[in-house]
Structure formats: C-alpha cells, structure tokens
C-alpha cells in the first residue's frame, strides 16, 4: 500500500510540474523510478512515456477548452516532430549517444541563458498580428503562416520553428526526452509565441511524440501495469488541477521554473556525455 501511494505521489508531482511547464513530467518520473524504486532504465522510460501521454491529454483538454493551446500551430509542428522522431529512431544506432548528449547539453545551456537574458530585458516580443489574423472562420486566413497566429501575436520564422521541431523529434528518439525542453523555447524565443501559449501548445504536442515510442515499448513488454497504474492516476490528478490554475501563476514564475529545468537537464545530459552516472530523462 505504501509503495503504491509513493508511486502515485511521484506521479502527482510530475503531473503538476509537467502541466505547468509544457513538459511531460518524465524528467521527474524516470529518476524517481530508477533511483527511488530501482526499476531498470528502459522500464522506467516506458512507464514515463505513458505518464507523459496522460499529462498531455489531461492538460491539453483544459488548455484547448480555454483556447489557450494553439491547435493549428501544434498540428503543424507535430508533423515535423513526429517525422524527426521516426527518423531519429531509425538512425539511433548509427550515431554516438555521448556526442549528441554533449551537443544537447550545450544547446540547453544556451537556451537557458537566452531565456534569462530576455526576462531581464523585456517580455518576449510577440510580433503584432495583422487585423483579423487567425479569426477567419474555417481558418481561411490569407496565408498559412497568418492562420497559425493568435489574438495578439503572429507566428514568425516558421521555417526555423519547423527545423527546431524536427530536431526536437530526433532528440526525443535518440536521447529518450519528450522534446518539451526544445519545443517551448523554440515557440517562445524563435517563433514569437507567448510563453504561456507555448507551454500549453507543447503540452498538446508532447502526447503525439510520446505515443509513437510508447506503442513500441508496450508491444515489447516493457510496461509494468502494476507500476504504471498508480503513477498514471497520480499524474492525472496533478495535471488536471494544475492546468485549471496555471493561468493564475505569473509568467515570471513559469520562466524561472523552466530555466531551472533546462539547467538541470543540461547538467544531466553533460554527465551522460562524459559517461558519468545519471538518473535518466523522459521529459
């Protein structure tokens, strides 16, 4: 009984964290299951992926209902994230995991520094939306890029965003991360999407990225239902409650938490690149 409650409690924490920051929450679940409960890494990643999907579905339902997540933008980027994940999965065995982890750590460090620098200077500068952009019924906006925008922001640098979404997908497959740590900064810093919309849209997208891998783990018998059950129930509770109160949390707090997660992930990736013992990831 105690073990079940601990698993559910860990899931609750991960669901809360994941829904708030646009991550899956695996960044907490994998270390919890491997270091806290002694599960094999692969089994922990498998359960984490199912939890990531639950976080995504539970929080995205609320964010979509409240028109906070951008479904059009999410679908567009998902196309390239999923393609990247597929290609990453196919070529995973050809590339050096340590080299990729080192590059990834450097990129995360740079992203964290960029977010801190932006916060000190000004709010992320959303490009002004043209009148009527994104409001035409049926999405029949004058251009595809324009149709992806929001009420008071326009999406910019779509090719760069697509490239980063592809990279997020490749890294997801190669390194076992969900990609939220790449998607959120890509939408916020590169594409000019407000941070709150970026985290909500990332929450929506993460489910698709994780589901492709989760099917594989499930079919290979890596998911232990007795462990996954309590974790999923806890994650659901955390994600539902957090997604309903997330709009009350100031953007500055979200930004600070996200930078902390980026730094933690960068350190862990750096340790993996140097072949030091690490807890594992699954965000």
């Amino acid at each position: 009984m105690a073990l079940t409650l601990f698993l559910a409690g860990g899931g609750l924490l991960a669901g809360t964290f994941g829904a708030l920051l646009g991550l899956g929450g695996g960044i907490l679940i994998v270390p919890l299951l491997t270091l806290g409960f002694g599960l094999p890494f692969r089994e922990a990643v498998a359960i984490s992926l199912v939890a990531v999907i639950t976080t995504s579905s539970a929080s995205a339902a609320v964010y979509l209902e409240r028109r906070l997540a951008n479904l059009r933008l999410g679908l567009t980027l998902e196309l390239f994230t999923a393609t990247g994940a597929l290609i990453g999965g196919l070529v995973a065995f050809l590339l050096s995991d340590r080299l990729l982890a080192g590059l990834f750590a450097a990129m995360l460090g740079y992203t964290a520094w960029s977010m801190v620098r932006r916060a000190g200077a000004r709010q992320p500068a959303p490009a002004a939306a043209a009148p009527g952009v994104g409001t035409t019924p049926g999405g029949a906006a004058p251009g595809y890029l324009a149709s992806l925008g929001g009420a008071d922001y326009a999406v910019r640098r779509l090719p760069a965003g697509i490239a980063l979404a592809f990279v997020a997908g490749v890294l997801s497959a190669l390194l076992g991360v969900g990609g939220g740590v790449v998607k959120v900064p890509a939408m916020n810093l590169v594409m000019g999407v407000p941070l709150r919309v970026a985290t909500a849209t990332s929450n929506l997208m993460i489910g698709v990225t994780a589901s492709a891998s989760a099917i594989l783990y499930l079919l290979r018998g890596q998911v232990d239902p007795y462990v996954a059950g309590p974790v999923v129930v806890g994650v659901f509770a955390g994600a539902v409650v957090t997604s309903r109160i997330a709009h009350r949390v100031p953007t500055g707090v979200v930004r600070v938490l996200f930078v902390v997660v980026l730094c933690y992930t960068a350190v862990e990736m750096g340790a993996r690149a140097l072949a030091l013992p690490v807890g594992g990831l699954g965000a």
């Binding site: 209902e65 028109r67 709009h247």
Partner: peptide, 18 residues
C-alpha cells in the same frame, strides 16, 4: 493572465478537447 488563441470560426479545438 491569459492570452486567448482565436479559432472563433472553428469548433474543432473544442471537439478535440472533449
């Protein structure tokens, strides 16, 4: 606190949410 994403002519996000 909330920036609302307009898809005012589309019921698809609401159906997906449900």
């Amino acid at each position: 606190w909330v920036v609302w994403v307009p898809e005012s002519g589309s019921g698809t996000p609401r159906r997906v949410a449900r």
